[in-house]
């Protein structure tokens, strides 16, 4: 295991934010994706979608200004931006499952080289687990970007040949942004697009169960121009 520095969660979120374009309608899930809205360039407007019925969700509410009838999917009081709308949970999932959102970003436990995705349950953990909106959002995503650590806390690879954790959805992931790499899911397998500063493709491969496809020189992970 290399002890070179990896990207922080904020740096992973900042890289993921580069995937967003002016006017995009975007669902952000739990984990690192929840940080992505902090890194959207100020010159573009992104309409964030929340599964409990918001399109056009703004930043968290300031202390003292919370309205507990306006919460995000993590149950935190939030604000809305001009152009926002409220609707029921069924309409919120219609948007996600019906492919009406431009991009969805979810946290992940495992992504397989065929795009299979697991993010809702670690086998052997206590309690009921819970699916929430993840299956609807992953299944219907026009473009699903998974943001996660490259390996587990114990060092086990999360980019795998076949998922061994309970699946969220089949063949749904388009791109994975980790603290070591940016990887695309292609019909041939994982294509390595970018690596963390100071890391070589070979070193990132050592932390990955599935084999990468490497085409030419792999650039460093892009940074925000700001």
């Amino acid at each position: 295991m290399s002890s070179k520095p990896k990207l922080t969660r904020e740096q992973v979120a900042a890289r993921a934010a580069l995937e967003l374009h002016d006017g995009d309608c975007v669902n952000l899930g739990w984990g690192i994706p929840n940080l992505v809205s902090n890194f959207v360039p100020s010159e573009i407007t992104v309409f964030f979608h929340s599964e409990n019925g918001i399109l056009g969700m703004g930043p968290r509410a300031k202390a003292g200004e919370e309205d507990y009838d306006v919460v995000d999917a993590m149950k935190v009081p939030v604000t809305v931006i001009p152009g926002a709308s409220y609707f029921d949970q069924g309409t919120a999932h219609l948007m996600a499952r019906g492919g009406h959102l431009d991009v969805s970003m979810l946290g992940g436990l495992q992504v397989a080289e065929n795009g299979d995705f697991a993010n809702w349950k670690i086998p052997g953990t206590k309690g009921s687990g819970g699916i929430g909106g993840a299956m609807d959002i992953a299944t219907g995503a026009r473009r699903l970007i998974v943001c996660m650590e490259h390996v587990t806390k114990e060092g086990a690879p999360k980019l795998v040949r076949r998922c061994t954790y309970p699946l969220t959805a089949l063949a749904c992931v388009h791109r994975v942004v980790t603290d070591l790499a940016v990887v695309d899911v292609t019909p041939e397998g994982f294509l390595l697009q970018e690596v963390a500063p100071g890391w070589t493709p070979q070193e990132v491969q050592q932390h990955t169960e599935a084999r990468f496809i490497v085409r030419g020189d792999v650039p460093e992970i892009k940074r925000s121009g700001r």
Binding site: Q89, A92, L94, G130, I131, A134, M135
Partner: peptide, 18 residues
């Protein structure tokens, strides 16, 4: 749930709505 005293059917959230 852990004590086995309650039954649970987990349903994806949007499917629950539909």
């Amino acid at each position: 749930y852990t004590a086995g005293k309650i039954s649970l059917e987990l349903v994806p959230q949007g499917i629950l709505c539909e």
